[in-house]
Design a protein around this nucleic acid. Sequence first.
DNA 1: GTAACCGAACTTTTT
DNA 2: GTTCGGTTAC
Length: 760
Amino acid sequence: MDAPLPVPSIPPRLDPDSLLATLNDAQRAAVEAPWGPVLVLAGPGSGKTRVLTQRIAWLVGVLGVPPWQVLAVTFTNKAAREMRTRVEALLGEGALGRLTLGTFHGVCAAFLRREAGRAHDAGLVAFDRDFVIYDGDDQLALVKRAIKELDIDEKQYRARAVLGAISAAKNEMLRAADYRPPTYWHEIAARVWARYDQLLQASNALDFDDLLLQTTALLQADRELLERYRSRWQWLLVDEFQDTNSVQYTLLKLLSAAEVAEAPHNIFVVGDEDQSIYRWRGADWRNIERFRKDFPAARVVLLERNYRSTQVILDAARAVIDRNRHRTPKALWTEREGGARLTLFEAYDETEEAAWVAAQIARHVERGEQGGDIAVMYRTNAQSRALEDALVRRRIPYRLVGATRFYDRREVRDALAYLRLAHNPRDEVSLARVINVPPRGIGPKAWEALRAVAHEHDEPLIDALRRIAEDGSGAIDTRTARALGAFHALLSDLIAQRADTPPSLLLDQALTASGYATWLRDGTEEGEDRWANLLELGSVAADFDAYPPREGLSAMLESVALVADVDSLDAGTAEERVTLLTLHSAKGLEFPTVFLTGLEEGTLPHMRSGDDPDALEEERRLLYVGLTRAERQLYLVHAFRRTFMGSTEPRERSRFLDDIPLAALAESAGRSAARARETSWKPSSTTWKPSTAASASSAAGAAPGGGELLRPGQKVRHATFGAGVVVAAVERGADQEVTVAFTGGGVRKLLQSFAKLERA
DNA sequence: GTAACCGAACTTTTT
DNA sequence: GTTCGGTTAC
């Protein structure tokens, strides 16, 4: 995360007045605050990033603070990148070579690598500077293994739940040793935890939580080190402060020398309780209250002026969020008075919901709006499917944010496992992952035998592997021993090469020598798709080829572990594409037009929230985040019934909708008044324009516009609704609007061009 | 040991 | 609807 090359240039002096000229009064008060703690409560769209970046520019450019004394932390890589770019624009490139700006996890990982030796001395968990970082999937694999090894019932102690408990405990700054399990279940979970930590250590690995935890623990245990970093990082800045968890808060307190009364406490935090949506991950908006208590001298600045949305949107959002109890009241205002009212639509089910959304989008696009200015948001990823289908049918290009992430793909993880093993041969999760991928005759039995040997000699698996490769081993039959030997030879080769082979070449070696490439490219289309992902990974690796090889590999693996998003894959016409994303991933973004879908009880608020008031408040914040993403136009959509996990059930509209004042809503939008009618929504004729491309390619399927018109009485079949009988059929231009009574219940009007009814 | 099949379980959000 | 794990057949 640190810039690799410190450039010894003197940052320019900036003219304070011109720096402040673009800011409003509240923003200015924050940016030019003198030393001491500052708490900025920033409503959505109030320019918090601007405040953070100008603050850094102010410190360095006006107060003359050396950049290396500044530590700025964010939660996402994207935010870090954006801040760096913007600060550089103010101060000039190179001026910030030694500024530390990164994510919590990135900064901690870099710190731990640098100070790995001291962690050893402090008697903390041992790891060396080559440690690997285990992400959620790796963690889960390890927990599963721990559960199996301890002979614990996997049904009752589901790995996911146990991992959740472990992670929650770690986020509370607990260690396995001093954990006091509240229930018997947790007692067992604690046992798994202890084993899990042993396994981590044996793999020379740290999980995500450990990056924060070990950093904090090390600074607590090593006074001298703490003093060193306190005098280095004298100016702390924190973005999205409401999302910090206990460990992060403790770390910040530690670095800012909170307990030393005469210390300057130069800690500048920006946050918004109303946008705290990561409670389940340990985030605690109450850290804002703690901050006020721990730093009573803190200057508090409220940013209430909104530069994003119309007043109508802000009023609706405020009506929703005002019902939460624990918050600092804020009155967002904007100069963009008035604005279009919100549209509320009730769809019959998720299919119609999606079709309606797609139709509205088509209308917007027809009126000249760019697809890229439109976003469709939902609570759970599963909801994207119907929306995608509808957009595909209308040939509206879209991009899906954060679905199957690039680094979560199986082939990418396999390939990375080879590289991780080359880098850190003790990595047992990676070893287990690829020891038989591609299949090389090392099944469960061989794996058990290998583990037995390792256990017997009390050595890492990799050493046991070598032992077997070298001496054979009595208890293992020759065929298995040979397979293990061959695998060991493969790994040794890679390990030997890592010192002088650039990452991209090493990857190539791994994929070729292991036979992975041949195995993957089995001639199917899927195989080629997966291969394409590996080529993409190759180009990621190539970015690190310029480093000295060993460092290149290390840097690449770290970057890959901490950077989740690579949506560079399908670059291109970004401005045409509608964005589909969850409410969580929408935080921080803005779009002229926003659709919020699935606004029903059970979805938002999600059923998992039950009647836990804190959970419900968070669901409400989630809606608030969604509402405040919109600049000009907002659509609120819910469905009368929804299919979820196989079964279809009626849905009531979200209770949160009741809080939106009628004045904010456009009248008689959709069919909320007559919800139970079984007729389908009918697109207005302006909505649907049969482009030649559309009819041409769908004609290949079911001959919609051309010739074969459906007649009443005709039995038909629909991909979703199943069998039915045509009740009526009306021509609509080149298309046909067909009314069908479905055997499964329901009478619907459908456009043949996209309903694609087949004669049955 | 592997591949193919089946049923069961699970689905919130992710640095 | 998916993915995971277990069972069966080769």
